[in-house]
Structure formats: structure tokens, C-alpha cells
Amino acid sequence: MFTHKPSGFPALSFSNTQTFEHFHSINCNGRLIDLSAPKIMGILNLTPDSFSDGGKFNNEKSALEQTEKMLKDGAEIIDIGPQSTRPNAEFLTSEEEIRRIGNIISLIKKEFPEALISLDTFYSETVKFGFNEGIDLINDISGGQYDDKMFETIAETKLPYILMHVNPTYKTMHDKIQFEDIILSENRYFSEKTAELLKLGVKDLILDPGFGFGKTVEDQMKMIDEVQYLGFGKFPLLIGISRKSFIYKPLGKSPLDINEETQKLHLKVLQQGAKILRVHDVLEAKKTLDRFVRS
């Protein structure tokens, strides 16, 4: 064990009367977070090579300023990413991730104690480092497949774990797979992985369908349309479609020019029971969330 330091899209066709309602809460270091009201997770990339904001927030001053802005704009969770996972991104070791993170987690916890901090990594050693710095959630794009010690480390931390659907190796994570039925394939994957995690004693699980990772545009639009069927309502769903290419490429736009289309899709997944939106543009997502709550 290690020690913890305290601290042209489809028209909308759903109304709130059709929303799939499930009660979910997660235990973040003894702080019970009620997900009956959806939350916004703001993305803080500490990377020089992320596809839309690389190099903007990879020092302590800019990271703290961006964190403050996202919290003021309505984020409740800050997702810290030391490594880009876009296609052809630079591959970092865990040691390099930890060096890149530096003191940023502890500085954010000190300056903004109300913020929940999520760490985006597929390395168990980076998780251990983040745990000792005071993180509240673990966001693993690999589903435990890129580090064979990840699941046992997650169990040791007792922190909530975000389980994403993705191809089985780092080299193939962006290879387009032809799924016979994407929803069925995802549910098989989630069923197997959650059973393994629950057996290890991991109690707080969040499912991420893995938009932008090895899926066709058609499959991703099907996922949007059928979000309500993912995971059978057993676990809360996180949706990360912010600035993803399946939205902007078919429209011939840039990642920074698709806010209207993205918010329509955000509203659609909220109406189907999504509990966390992982976003770059917090203020715009908060407007969508408020619209959903009022409807």
C-alpha cells in the first residue's frame, strides 16, 4: 500500500419525461458526490502536443489560471492530462508523465480545495503518484489494458475509476474497427471489465464509451443515439465528445468551430441519462446543462 496525503445532426427527440433516471453517487476520498445532477469535467491538458490546446496550460501559472476559469464557468471536476492520446502523439513513460505533472495537483488542491481532481493516465505508477498528491478520481483511457498492474492499483486507492472502451493496445488504440453492433460490443466489454474490477473491490465505477478512439463516424453517431443502452444503467456514464473529429471532419470545420453542433449532442446525451460531460469549453457546456435542468 501507499499513503495518501489528505487534503447536420439528428434532431433532438427526447424530453425529460423520457430521460432514463438512475441514482448514482461516487465516494471521492470520503466525500460523497451525488450524480443525480450531472456534472461538468473540465479538461486541463499539461501537454505541448494536444490537438486543440497543446502548450497553453503546461506550466504552473497557466494551469492554475485555467483551473480557476473552468471552476468559475461551472466545472466541478478538473481532469489533468499529462500525455496526449491523439493520433500520432508523442509517447511518454510514467516517469515523464510524473515529471510533467510536477506540483500542479498539490497546487490546485491547495488553491481550490472544493475542486475534484481527476488524473488522466494509463500508468499505475502515475496513479500512485497522483494518489499521494491528493487526486479524487482516476481516468484511464486504456481500460487497464496498457499496464497489467492498473486494476490492482485502482483497487488499492479505493478511488472512483473511469473505465473507457478502447482497442486493446496502445499502438492500435486509433485503428478503426468494424463492429457488427457497437452497442453490443461495448456492453460485452463493460460487462467483462466491471466484473473484474468489482471482484477486486473497486466500488465506484464510471463508464466512458470512448468517443474518438477506433470507431467510425457512423458508429459514434449510433452511440450518441443509443447512449441510454450503454451499461444497462448500472453505472454512471461519462461522455467525452469535446472537439472530436467525428463531429468536425464531416462538416469540414476545425475542432474550435463546432460549439453549436457539440452542444446539441451534449443535450441529447444528457436527456438519455449521461452524468458527466468531459469538455474543453466549460461555459458553453454549463449553458447546455442549465438548459437541460430547466426543460
Rank of each mutant, 00 (worst) to 15 (best):
T3I: 10
K5E: 08
S7E: 10
S7L: 13
F14H: 11
T17C: 05
C28N: 05
R31I: 10
I33T: 00
L35G: 02
I40R: 01
M41V: 02
G42K: 08
N45V: 12
F51W: 10
K56S: 11
F57M: 02
N58Q: 02
E60Y: 01
S62M: 07
A63L: 00
L64N: 01
E68F: 03
E68Y: 04
D73M: 04
A75I: 06
A75N: 03
E76K: 07
I77C: 02
I80Q: 01
I80K: 02
P82R: 11
Q83V: 13
Q83N: 04
R86E: 11
R86L: 02
A89L: 11
T93E: 13
R99K: 15
N103R: 10
N103S: 14
I104S: 09
I104E: 04
I105N: 14
S118W: 01
Y123Q: 06
Y123N: 12
S124D: 14
V127I: 15
N132A: 09
D140Q: 01
I141L: 13
K149I: 07
A155R: 09
A155P: 07
P160K: 03
P160R: 05
P160Y: 07
L163V: 01
H165D: 07
T169D: 07
M173R: 08
K176L: 15
Q178T: 11
F179H: 12
D181P: 06
Y189G: 11
F190I: 13
S191Y: 14
S191T: 14
K193H: 08
L197A: 01
L198F: 07
L205Q: 03
D208Y: 04
P209S: 10
G212Y: 08
K215H: 04
K215V: 02
E218W: 07
E218H: 06
I224M: 15
Q228P: 00
L230K: 03
G231M: 09
F232W: 09
G233V: 03
F235C: 04
F235G: 06
P236N: 10
G240S: 14
R243L: 09
R243I: 10
Y248N: 06
Y248F: 15
P250V: 12
L256G: 06
D257P: 00
D257H: 04
L265Y: 10
K268V: 00
L270H: 07
Q272S: 12
R278F: 08
D281P: 10
E284K: 14
D290Y: 06
F292Y: 14
